[in-house]
Design a protein around this nucleic acid. Structure first.
Lengths: 301, 301
DNA sequence: GCAAATTACTTGACTTTGTCAAGTGATTCT
DNA sequence: AGAATCACTTGACAAAGTCAAGTAATTTGC
């Protein structure tokens, strides 16, 4: 079962659940169509029929009749627009507000009931997961932001490095130990005046990282722990991280920047080459249980 | 906006997206109702009308007419049950199979299109998130499993410890550095013959952890890094981890087990007390920027 | 072992919902 | 100022959904 099948399975499962929730509206004595109109008007009073057609994807003729009935039943109030006499602005009457409040309350109760048998933290967990999905699918794309290390970030860097390199590229466990040492050293001994790290994140979701530390020579900075999540690649995020790191190093008085990587990281190497790094050495090594070609790159700042 | 509102917002957003997908079926020349029947029969041939009523939540009269039309159009084949002559078993005809294949293909294409503007890793990310949600909501609850540390786990332990203690309890950054040191030491120097760790997980989701390492005295084990995710609490998971750890220590020839914790961890302390641990000392200390009461507990194995 | 109850489905009569095209005024474009 | 567009309404249907009353097969209860 691939990813798309997983999503399809979720859709079947979830629409069945939502269907149960929808049914809760039906015994309010109003049709689902009317309730949907009430919902929209509660969210944004003054909408016109046209707006509702666009937002609810219903036929305008049908909506017209539906609105007529709702006015007759006292759910909504129609007001001819003063700016444009073709338009009719729609508002909820007090009875409409009341219906909305009741439906919201039922909807919330229904969702709470879905979590009744799950654990206490389940709501938070699901809410976060669904919010993440919504953002990925374009519900409201928050911008990517960059911050210094916050509590938990160091662990995340270690976790994702280990998972990528050991899980996908076949490095052995010694790699994780090495990275743990690098991170522990950084946390314990870093010089905040010249060393720092960046985490790229969207809301609470971490997307990538880069570290700038002192290099082996004087006035030399070293770039480390550079990574962009697979899910966030192709958005020039790596370039932004690299620029932050390089600019910081230059700003702090470093004259060169070096980094070590492996030949197999084509995308990263291409990025280095495009940004003024020069390949200094390239040699086959036996590391982490694999035959690798280790490269060192340098850039004059 | 609380968690339930977040879920409600997702529902609005997601149903709108699914609506677009459903529309794709309509120009197959068949109604959504018929397509839904075809889907179910593809999944489980030989269903009866009754089964479909239950699964699709449709009126049986309407379904009866719909099935009649589908048989006339050559989509399905009806076969009187041999075991019970009241029942009619329903099967897809070759044409029905073909329609199903086409719809599946369109559905998949539609989902793929939803991800067109998102990054390449987005599908995986969303699939995992939705699968997690489905499991939490009871789609198919996988059992919790326990494993030794796998690559990435060490980083996760560090991350979640830092987030819980620094984020929720107000510890300062020195706590994260301390934990990073503990983890680095464990990875580098542990004695696999007597020391190990457990990760509680459901599929790829980590739920908790516990470490058993050598203690300060001879024949003494030490319990460390014990944690259960808030979302997974209340399921006796902590007890299971504790038992694994204690049993291992006893099995490896340790005679006592000690642990250090803070008084504020009521739930954990109660668990220790219930499982044969005895409070050895309790003293106020200034640690991690807070006034805490540090406790040591010991159990005879 | 047989009438009564139940089950699986069908049918008829009906309401609601959805669709399409042809209206009516109001407004904008040029 | 005349044509085009826009916001909405209406009419004529088609499709989908609802409810109750069927029919035949199978269980149940005594």
């Amino acid at each position: 079962m691939d990813n798309i099948d997983t999503i399809r399975a979720f859709n079947r499962f979830y629409t069945a659940r939502l269907g149960v929730l929808d049914r809760a509206y039906l015994d309010s004595g109003h049709s689902l169509g009317e309730v949907r109109v009430v919902f929209e008007l509660a969210r944004e009073p003054g909408l016109t029929a046209r707006d509702l057609v666009a937002q609810l994807q219903v036929d305008e003729g049908q909506l017209s009749r539906s609105l007529k009935a709702m006015e007759r039943n006292g759910l909504i109030i129609r007001k001819r627009s003063e700016a444009d006499a073709r338009r009719v602005e729609l508002y909820l009457s007090p009875a409409g507000e009341e219906l909305n409040a009741m439906c919201v309350q039922r909807s919330r109760a229904g969702i709470a009931a879905m979590f009744a048998q799950a654990g206490p933290g389940a709501v938070t967990q699901v809410a976060e997961a669904l919010d993440g999905v919504q953002q990925v699918l374009g519900g409201r794309p928050e911008p990517v932001q960059f911050r210094d290390l916050a509590p938990g970030d160091a662990g995340w860097v270690l976790q994702r490095h280990a998972e990528h390199y050991c899980g996908n590229e076949g490095f052995d466990d010694s790699f994780e130990t090495l990275v743990a040492g690098i991170i522990q050293d950084y946390l314990r001994d870093r010089d905040p005046a010249v060393e720092r790290a960046w985490i790229a994140h969207r809301n609470d979701q971490r997307l990538g990282c880069i570290f700038c530390v002192r290099g082996p020579e004087a006035k030399q900075a070293k770039l480390r722990m550079f990574m962009v999540e697979p899910a966030a690649r192709g958005q020039r995020l790596g370039l932004q991280l690299l620029n932050l790191c390089v600019d910081w190093a230059r700003d702090k008085g470093f004259e060169t920047m070096v980094l070590w990587t492996h030949e197999s990281h084509r995308a990263a190497c291409a990025l280095y080459a495009q940004n003024g790094f020069v390949l200094m050495s390239s040699e086959p090594v036996r590391s982490f249980g694999l035959d690798l070609v280790e490269q060192s790159w340098m850039k004059t700042l």
